[in-house]
Design a protein around this nucleic acid. Sequence first.
DNA 1: ATAGGTAATATTGTCTGTCAATCTGATTGA
DNA 2: TCAATCAGATTGACAGACAATATTACCTAT
Lengths: 219, 219
Amino acid sequence: MELDLRITRKTVQQEVVDKLRQAILSGMFPPGHRLVEGELCEALGVSRSSLREALRNLQAEHLVEIIPNRGPQVPVLSWEDAEEIYEVRELLEGEAAARCASRMSDDCISQLEERLEAFHRAVLDEDGEALTEAAAAFYAVILSGCGNKIIVQVQAGLLARISYLRTRSMSLPGRARRSYEEMRAIYAAIAARDERDARKAAMKHVANARASAKQTFPA
Amino acid sequence: MELDLRITRKTVQQEVVDKLRQAILSGMFPPGHRLVEGELCEALGVSRSSLREALRNLQAEHLVEIIPNRGPQVPVLSWEDAEEIYEVRELLEGEAAARCASRMSDDCISQLEERLEAFHRAVLDEDGEALTEAAAAFYAVILSGCGNKIIVQVQAGLLARISYLRTRSMSLPGRARRSYEEMRAIYAAIAARDERDARKAAMKHVANARASAKQTFPA
DNA sequence: ATAGGTAATATTGTCTGTCAATCTGATTGA
DNA sequence: TCAATCAGATTGACAGACAATATTACCTAT
């Protein structure tokens, strides 16, 4: 019996999807930016077929918008759309935190604490790079600890769609610090195994993030 | 000021996506079925490029699974995955119903009642076709009435992934009838503008659907 | 006859090239 | 200045090619 070591050797198209997604999330392609097939093919060194397949993939993820006969572009989010995404995040992340409170192992909880402290250090250092990274690491523990892969999937999809907003709002003065307080509240509730508080704290965290995002909006 | 009547003339690839999605949802391609590019190209009368782009789209929707060097196939859902989808549906549909209770117009509420009665008739007629159609129409009112397009999007995506299970479990003896009772409870709570009850009823409805689905599972 | 290995076939991943339809931008003319 | 027109750029869709991989059929040896 041979273990399936199917080293899913990254197919070209998969690599293109990852690269493009990364480029969009990192803000290299800002909202509204048109993605011209020819340019991307040259930049990535792949054929149009492969590129187009990758773009269709990202289209289904709502990371690019393909307008017939006009081509793909990075979608521009209206505030209404963004707000609705935050609302759903509130639901999902509240649920995830609540589940963590009741089912997370002690090991995971101490890992959560470590990541919280890493975020704290990033706040004190005012290191924007480390900030978003540490925040993502903290959430990753909660999401993966909630025991529902679908929640993780959906939440990741929603986060991607508002990445631009998030990086902007996270750099508002004072937002990082308050963010830390809120995350600590979530951690405390989970460590105390208090489902209700955990949900409440996580929902409040998202609600505050939404408020910050709104401030930065008209840009 | 000219209204944008951009009759998004259905591009070939879009039509292929719709056709394939419909085929999968209708059960024409059962879970596990392999989708051979050559066959589909011939059946649909399109080129491989167009077909492959469409498949990438469906892959991102999790309606097909593409294994490198093996090709696309309809995913087989484990019960664990299905259960997690039901759990998220509980959250989303509970929220949607709660929102309907507080914000739905009286017109919408009477429309909801009509659709409920249409479902009732389908139950009495034991018309499986009309049953799923009427159920979908009922939910459509609630989902669209909840005022959050993201909830609608995500829920639709999740429903699609368990369509096979749903049609099977809806045809369990007695399930349709109980389904009607549950839907009536949702309607009643919304009509009474009772957020809490509406959420509770909608969640219970999904929970019961999950229980029915579980029964049919080992297939 | 069956297990295991090998050859033949089918299928996929990727590229190149083509062509019409459509969009974009610039030029021109009133 | 504004509108019409035209040239160039870009996309949507197709066909075909070819290597890499997977699947099947076949054959041999135990």
